[in-house]
């Protein structure tokens, strides 16, 4: 199968990449890539534009940071707890928002995420503007030190693959099948006996959980949980990554995250650093105007829907 070959070669590439590229950069790509994949689950497969996904990234990061620093949990438990916290928050957000469609859904998620942002700004344990610094990477299962970047890279890759697998499975599950039906024609899905709001709620919660997983892992990589993670700009950035890579394609968000993180890294040091937001804005406009299906979407078109049966 072509799809399996593609995944296999990507995996080999990922395993060899740190020999050529800086592992921290790669880990950043993987974390944001996973975050974008999670976001794409609600936008691409649920047709819901969430403008508050940073809340889940931030919640994952802060929870993991707090538990690893103050409680001394091992990294895998801290990540698990961060994921669970984000999932719980997602379940709550979802209950309040999925009943509303379109712009109302976006506005409610944005408002809720702002609430969460200000909570993290004020809460005593988050370090306010400075963020939570010096989060220990710790020892995996209390055995294997993750201090070394290369070791950590393979751990992060494993986490990414787990998160990616959850998303892939969700899309290709009986549940995913109903979700696609709802996206295509919600009224019809309802008339076939599906309580569509319940399905959207579960999808949203799953997405929040994986976004939390990405945030938790990111906190260990950078040993930092900061307000940036929970900021509305982050919610916007993930929209950009997903659109750039290709909404509703399984690999698109990863590609989009790769491009955005690369641009950010290349520009932040140089003279153009001050113009970074302008450049991102320009990319966004070009992307929406010129190639709507995104990088992976366009490649798929060229390859004649070869990569994935999923299509758009």
């Amino acid at each position: 199968m072509r799809i399996n070959k593609l995944y296999l070669s990507l995996l080999v590439l990922a395993l060899l990449a740190p020999l050529v590229l800086y592992p921290v950069f790669l880990m950043k790509v993987l974390c944001y890539g996973l975050f974008a994949c999670a976001f794409n689950l609600v936008l691409g497969y649920g047709g819901l534009l969430s403008l508050g996904h940073a809340a889940f990234l931030g919640t994952g990061a802060y929870t993991t940071g707090y538990l690893a620093t103050r409680v001394g949990l091992t990294p895998e438990l801290a990540i698990l707890a961060g994921t669970a916290a984000a999932a719980a928050l997602g379940a709550l957000f979802g209950k309040l928002s999925v009943k509303r469609g379109g712009i109302y859904f976006g506005m409610i998620t944005l408002a809720l995420a702002q609430l969460v942002f200000f909570f993290y700004l004020q809460a005593p344990f988050t370090g306010g503007e400075d963020g939570m610094q010096g989060i220990p990477r710790g020892e995996l299962f209390g055995l294997l030190s993750l201090e070394d970047n290369l070791t950590l890279y393979y751990f992060v890759l494993a986490v990414f693959l787990l998160g990616f697998w959850v998303i892939h499975r969700t899309v290709h599950s009986p549940f995913g099948q109903v979700m696609k039906a709802i996206r295509e024609n919600e009224a019809r899905a309802m008339s076939l006996g599906y309580n569509t709001d319940d399905f959207k709620w579960l999808l949203f919660t799953l997405s929040a959980a994986v976004a939390g997983l990405a945030g938790s892992t990111k906190a260990l990589v950078f040993q930092l949980a900061s307000l940036n993670d929970a900021h509305w700009q982050m919610s916007g950035e993930v929209v950009l990554m997903t659109l750039l890579g290709g909404v509703g394609t399984i690999l698109g968000p990863l590609a989009g995250a790769g491009v955005i993180v690369t641009i950010q890294n290349q520009l932040s040091g140089g003279e153009l650093g001050n113009y970074i937001h302008m450049i991102m804005g320009a990319i966004f406009v070009i992307c929406v105007l010129a190639f709507r299906s995104g990088i992976v979407g366009e490649i798929q078109k060229l390859a004649g829907r070869g990569f994935s049966r999923q299509g758009r």
């Binding site: 499975r169 599950s173 009986p174 549940f175 099948q177 076939l192 599906y194 319940d198 799953l206």
Partner: peptide
Amino acid sequence: ENVRVALQQKEGISFCFWRSERVL
């Protein structure tokens, strides 16, 4: 798949996001 998504409704597996769609 159009017909199957309707048949699926009575199977009680529609929330199973962890199972493969092959069960369908």
